[in-house]
Design a protein around this nucleic acid. Structure first.
Length: 256
DNA sequence: AAATCGAGCAACCGCATTTGT
DNA sequence: TACAAATGCGGTTGCTCGATT
C-alpha cells in the first residue's frame, strides 16, 4: 500500500503558472490569508494541488520577496551559513530576508559552487580541494551525509558525546574542519551538576549563545535571555547551539 | 540560419516532520 | 498512544534562453 497522493492528479494543472493563476492565488491569499493549502486551490478556483500553490506563493508571489541579484555580502553569508548548517536551505533562507530556500538552493548550485571550486574549495566540505579525503574518524558539519542523523552525530561529537562507532571524534576536530565555528566553550558531561547556564553550555565568546552569533537574539532559541529559569540542563539535556541536545535537533533553529 | 550545448531557474516528487483526532 | 492528514523540506527534473559552432 502506497501513500495516497496529495491531490487528485487527474484534475490538476502542472507546469508553469499562468498570469491568471497567479492573480487568483494572490487575490485569494490577500482576502483570506495563508493556511490550509490543501483546500485553498478549490476555494480559490485553481486547478492546482495545494503543494503547488504553497510553493508558488512562497517562492514567487509573496510581496516581501527581494528578487534580483545576490550581493557579495549575501554570497559570503550563504557560504558561511552553509559551512555551519550544510544543505539546510530553509534555515539559511531564514537569515536572508527576502530570499527563499529554493532561490538560495538554485543560487548555490549554479553560482556559489563554482565560485568555491574556483577558489580551490570543496563546496561540500568547505575544505581545500587538494586535501586528502577524510578518514572515518573525522567529521565536518558541512560534509554532506545522507539525511539527518549523521549531521546530528557530528554535533553530538562536537559536544563531546562519543560515538561508539567513532570514538576519536572531538570538538577540536570540528573546529579544525570549521574554523569559522567558535568552539571556545566549556563542555561538561551530562552527569555533572552545573546549574549556571550562562557559564556552562551554549555560550560562545562574549557571553552570547550560538543563536545570538547567528543573529537570533530575539528567537526562542536564544539562551542568553532565559536567565536562571531557562536552563535546560535540569532535564538532562544541554541547550547548546540553541538545541536541546538530548534530542540534538538543530532544525529548531529555524525562524519564521 | 540552424543545430547544439550549457547555464539558470521554476516546478515537481518523495520523504520527513508536525499536527490533529 | 497510534494513526492519518497536512505541511514543510531538500533533491531532482525539465524547460527556456542565450552563447557557440
Amino acid at each position: 500500500m502506497g501513500r495516497s497522493p496529495c491531490c487528485e492528479k487527474a484534475h490538476t494543472n502542472k507546469g508553469a503558472w499562468t498570469k491568471e493563476e497567479d492573480e487568483r492565488l494572490i487575490a485569494y491569499i490577500r482576502a483570506h490569508g495563508e493556511g490550509c493549502w490543501r483546500s485553498l486551490p478549490k476555494a480559490a478556483g485553481l486547478l492546482r494541488c495545494g503543494k503547488s500553490c504553497r510553493l508558488r506563493w512562497i517562492n514567487y508571489l509573496r510581496p516581501d520577496l527581494k528578487r534580483g541579484n545576490f550581493t557579495e555580502e549575501e554570497d559570503e553569508l550563504i557560504i558561511k551559513l552553509h559551512s555551519l548548517l550544510g544543505n539546510k536551505w530553509s534555515l539559511i533562507a531564514g537569515r536572508l530576508p527576502g530570499r527563499t530556500d529554493n532561490e538560495i538552493k538554485n543560487y548555490w548550485n549554479t553560482h556559489i559552487r563554482r565560485k568555491l571550486l574556483n577558489r580551490g574549495i570543496d563546496p561540500a566540505t568547505h575544505r581545500p580541494l587538494n586535501e586528502p579525503a577524510q578518514d572515518a574518524t573525522t567529521i565536518s558539519f558541512a560534509a554532506a551525509p545522507s539525511k539527518q542523523e549523521p549531521r546530528d552525530d557530528a554535533i553530538a561529537a562536537a559536544l563531546g558525546y562519543k560515538n561508539e562507532n567513532n570514538p576519536t571524534t572531538t570538538a577540536a576536530t570540528v573546529q579544525e574542519k570549521c574554523p569559522d565555528l567558535n568552539l571556545e566553550l566549556r563542555i561538561s558531561p551530562p552527569c555533572q551538576q552545573q546549574h549556571q547556564p550562562d557559564a556552562s553550555m551554549g555560550m560562545v565568546e562574549g557571553n552570547h549563545c550560538f543563536a545570538c552569533s547567528l543573529g537570533l537574539q530575539n528567537s526562542k532559541e536564544c539562551s542568553c535571555r532565559r536567565g536562571a529559569s531557562g536552563g535546560s540542563s535540569a532535564h538532562g539535556g544541554y541547550d547548546f547551539l540553541g538545541l536541546k541536545t538530548s534530542v540534538l535537533d538543530f532544525r529548531t533553529l529555524e525562524m519564521k
